[in-house]
Write a protein that binds this DNA or RNA. Sequence first.
RNA 1: GGUCCCGUAGCUCAGCUGGAUAGAGCAUCUGCCUUCUAAGCAGACGGUCGCGCGUUCGAAUCGCGCCGGGAUCACCA
Length: 592
Amino acid sequence: MNTIYSLKAVLSELLFDLFGVDDIAIDLQETKKEFNGDITLVVFPILKRSRLSPEATAELIGIRLLEKTNIIDTYSVVHGFLNLTYSRGIVIKTFDTIKATPGFGIRKVDKSLPSSMIEYSSPNTNKPLHLGHIRNILLGMSISKILQASGMNTIQVQIINDRGVQICKSMWAWSQFSNGETPESSGMKGDHLVGKYYVLFDKEYKKQVSQSISSGVSEEEAKKSVKCIVQVQEMLLQWESGDSEIVKLWSKMNNWVYSGFDKTYKRLGTDFDKNYYESDTYLLGKIDIEEGIKNNVFFRKKDNSVWIDLSSDGLDEKLVLRKDGSSVYMTQDIGTAIQRFKDFEINSLTYVVGNEQDYHFKVLFLILEKLGYKWANKLRNLSYGMVDLPTGKMKSREGNVVDADDLMDQMELAAMKLSNELGKASFYDEIEHKELNISLGHGALKYFILKVDPKKRMVFNPDESIDFNGNTGPFLQYTHARISSLIRKGRGEQSKWSWDDFSLTEKERDLILFLSKFPEIIDSAALNLNPSIVASYLYDLAKIFNSFYQQHSVLNAETAQIVAFRVDLCKQIVSVMKTGLGLLGINAPDRM
RNA sequence: GGUCCCGUAGCUCAGCUGGAUAGAGCAUCUGCCUUCUAAGCAGACGGUCGCGCGUUCGAAUCGCGCCGGGAUCACCA
């Protein structure tokens, strides 16, 4: 339907007829604000074939274009730039199409097609979620919605790192220090309680190490031999051998953590279709390694460890099985990926993972390709930069993290405070007001994180980073609420309008043309695994609307027909805003 | 040392499949609420696009080389 595509088709034919140029040379781009027009053809690439001056070439194309199509109304030539203005007819048609398309921008999903699997969050169970997880979760959640909107079925999964030395540390400390403390008895969220003991372990460990050192043991030796760490190692072995007491404790503490995570996920608005647990999957992959040895993908060294040589791909040798036959991370990831393609009818798998693991995933994908899985080229990595604090890196075991729950509390509080300052509280009853502050606080946080290109590293300053003015979530929500209000108030206006009743203002044209880009924006965000594309589109849309709003009155427009038309236009804008914010996981309140 | 990512206004970021005078927000300053929500709008101020060389009619954008920041290359997870 898109006007740019139809224009490109016409141009393609025309330029071939005129000069014999191919599509590659057709460079169409939006016209800069300073010039008249909507879209610009850059004619420089055509000059070689046209053998005319830039101006003459542009003129010639302009004239012919007007003869050939009614998409374009007028043109102007500035140097080598042919600026084209869409005709009223095509603008009208564009708006009619948008209006006639329910859920404009969202492509229908064919349920019978294979799905795309997205893995994200992937927490450890020894500590609560923090700001780093928030970036991961928001990206995963948002990209899942975007993929759905672009017409894919999705399966959202997380792999929960529920075993290993980390959780044993929490278990050990709890056994030592807790006196049987539980989430119920302490009133703490389960994940926070377990995290508390993880930090306690670290303190105790450091204490024991320094005591050991002062009694004459070398630092290196002390770190390995201190009582608490030795006991943790024993615990891990007991867990692996299925010791019932240990497994019971492990299971109890993990369940505390899960109920805590569930609350946080719910608050963030995410939900997984399936959880994978590392305790179930950590043995996967060994069989595949054996298979790969037979096929000469892997090789065994003298000490019995198994490797893959990736030097011909510009990478190193990589271990896939230890000399004692036990797995490394890579082993599990190989096995888990293969398992997933068996478990589900999926045709792609996207991992949302911090960029510190780029190398790991590059290797993983390469190994799976070498193992001959044809879906290996459908593996993707949405890699994102770390979130650091002004004071440096967050470290859970040292406790200097921005906790996910605390952060959301803080955001809600800030929204409440601002709303009271602005004197808006009186419009609402208490519950409604609370919900609104949740929407706005979370909107600010989500937009702050998602508007940035995922691959950029970001510094988060809890005191300064979050704003409610300017290029922010609440600004978009405010714009949405404002338009909603117009529609509410305009409901009484029953006038019918037709295109013959009025001419379009410049801002109205801008809005219609800008709205029409929404589907491409979604496709582009899906293709690039980048929600920030949606975020900046919505921001631009809001800017254009607010500018329109300031210049023209909707409800007090010159005639009843124009009022009716503008209300209709508002309906389309509000729909795109709401859909778009939804893709970012942000609520769009009707008033605020 | 090898590899990957980042470097654009005082700060936070767009723009990067080459195109016209590099755009927003925050901060600072000026206007605009007795008319549809001022969490807004209009404007001012603010730039050697890290540096150099190259490719090109044209480079923030592509290539090469530096510089700065981060990550990674574990029989850790």
